[in-house]
Nucleic acid binder design. Structure first.
Lengths: 185, 185
DNA sequence: GTCTATAGACTGATAGAC
DNA sequence: GTCTATCAGTCTATAGAC
């Protein structure tokens, strides 16, 4: 029987992202995804050749955004002393995490994912690249600061998921910018 | 046939923690854990009644430490202006994460875990409780700062796992302490 | 495009011999 | 304590009807 909606593929992705983010990829079966939108597992296989292919298509948009951000910033590292410039990059990273927060959740929660053949090549150290651009330095202490700042920012969109994220934005970015300042407090 | 080692239970826990941290709990089977230490799945079941029981015993020590820290700090909130006091708490949290970094990894990577009946009651908002003690405030902005600081610190013991963590400690704690300072940078 | 039916592998867990 | 053997259930994935 034909279905009420036109875009079954989009429906599959939406249901899958929700379940993957909530329970993890391994803990979610294709049967569950299919049943959530009222089709059978076999019908799902008509649209996606495998679970890996589905996961790959889900995480792709975020990787594309990260690559764009990396490309744009590459070659012109941020001066750590220029607070406005640092803040601008942190803000963009926050917005990116916010837009893709369900994907962030999936990636954080599924380490085995990045080892899968379909997905690993697309990861390319995603956040590490932004780290590097942001601190523009190989100094290990600078890298640590970047991990605290961006890791912390990334965590907020997950931890405060149900809350008013517009209110979280300001303090989160402030804290991250401060964490990035070199030297002892 | 009796085995070379005395403490099979400890061997099981060690192998399980390694595999759970690496791939996630759902993606690791009891057969894999058993075979890694040269016994069968049935032998493993002699020592642990279920997968949940095994997971529970693995995460217990960290929860116990968090409860101790919470108990000790409870009732005497840290003055956000007292930098030395703030630093002391952040340092203790860092050490706790470092000691339990494989468990941290397991918990981060397995959201579904905290919903399991055996484990949920022991979680009791672990990090949230430390957050609360640390900022000693219900102000949402303070809570956000605490999440950035402690989330960032927690991330470093995972991200820099293979590196020299003694060198990571200083910059990580500095960055977290700075992130906790109120107001705009 | 969606279905039913099924293959084949693996899972967590148990029974009972040694 | 560890084994072999097995259960019932689930999984990914496919074949073929409509």
């Amino acid at each position: 029987m034909p279905r009420a909606t036109v875009d079954t593929r989009a429906e599959i992705r939406a249901a899958a992202l929700e379940l993957f983010a909530e329970r993890g990829v391994e803990a979610t079966s294709l049967r569950e995804i299919a049943e959530r939108i009222g089709i059978t597992k076999a019908a799902l296989y008509y649209h996606y050749a495998s679970k890996d292919a589905l996961v790959g298509e889900l995480v792709d948009p975020m990787f594309a955004e990260l690559r764009e951000l990396g490309d744009e910033l590459e070659g012109r590292p941020v001066d750590a002393g220029d607070e406005a410039a640092v803040r601008a990059v942190v803000e963009r990273f926050w917005e990116l995490c916010l837009r893709n927060r369900e994907v962030v959740r999936v990636l954080i929660h599924n380490p085995a994912l990045i080892a899968r053949a379909e997905i690993a090549p697309r990861m390319l150290h995603w956040r590490e690249r932004v780290d590097a651009v942001l601190v523009g330095s190989d100094d290990p202490a600078d890298r640590v600061r970047a991990v605290v700042a961006l890791g912390g920012v990334q965590d907020t969109v997950i931890v405060f998921e149900g809350d008013d994220l517009a209110a979280v934005r300001g303090p989160a970015i402030d804290a991250a910018v401060r964490a990035l300042q070199p030297g002892r407090p």
